[in-house]
Amino acid sequence: MLRYLIRRVLYAIPILIGVNVLTFTLFFIVNSPDDMARMQLGVKRVTPEAIDNWKRERGYDRPLLWNGSAQGIDRVRDTIFFTHSLRLFKFDFGTAESDGRDIGHEIRTRMWPSLSIALPVFIVGLATYVTFALLMALFRATFLDFAGVLVCVTAMAISTMFYIIGGQFLVCKLWNLAPISGFAPGIGAWRFILLPVGVGLVAGFGESSRWYRTIFLEEINKDYVRTARAKGLSEGRVLVHHVLRNALIPILTGVVVVIPGLFLGSLVTESFFGIPGLGSYTIDAIGSQDFAVVRSMVFLGSLLYIVGLILTDISYTLVDPRIRFE
């Protein structure tokens, strides 16, 4: 088991290196630092001095991969690749290009608001959707199932942004139940969290419930379910003890992988509700074309995804004895 985990972690390293090389190519080779400087400083009133100055301030005045003018190990170390890309492995994200703040610090403080919304949506959502899907499976081929699918398909056809706008309009503007946007630290945050969480739940409802229903129906047609019924078990017990337990395997594949990513929050939700989380941080960085922040978020996102993959593998060992006793 432990060896298995170590192996999984080792698999992650080449992938992270790949991500790093890819982002490096994207950010420094497709466009040179000069181009970026010109862009940041505004195309019109740019002088070579201003460009050099901008690059020096941010450490982009080094060569990309190989520093011929340096000595010894510094030929490799004193390059953009080493100082800006490889150091991400140490979780050293550097400073933002737009306001010079420490990115690592921002991430550490902003992940909590993100998490405070993403986590409840994830947990409550999973429970709700699975329950709803089980009900649809229980009443399969009846009017209830048909109506449930219809609701799901309709809900799926609505963009998240409409759910947010609609929610804000109804709850905040018409009913005056919650503040439209903003955030408060600590326990006082609940007033600001409630609506985004509710909207998140509604927005994810259609797609997830329908997907789980498909999984359940696929399991329901298997032979072992017939065996369970042949034992005289009630349909509810068959669904929960047999179908659900087997369906957990495909469900976990899609679900566990997103857990680490919850820290990153949702771009759209946070921006609409003015939550000072990592999602809105990313959006602001995109808006101000702050490449250092975007680069850090890309790396962090990949890292969390890979952690998610490893967690998925671990979760398999919990539900699937075939893997547990490998």
């Binding site: 298997k222 032979d223 017939r226 369970a228 047999h242 337990r245 087997n246 699937d320 004895p321």
Partner: peptide, 13 residues
């Protein structure tokens, strides 16, 4: 049933 492999629940002892 015919297929003992498929007729037992794979994740239950």
């Amino acid at each position: 049933f015919q297929e003992p492999g498929a007729s037992l629940n794979p994740v239950m002892s």
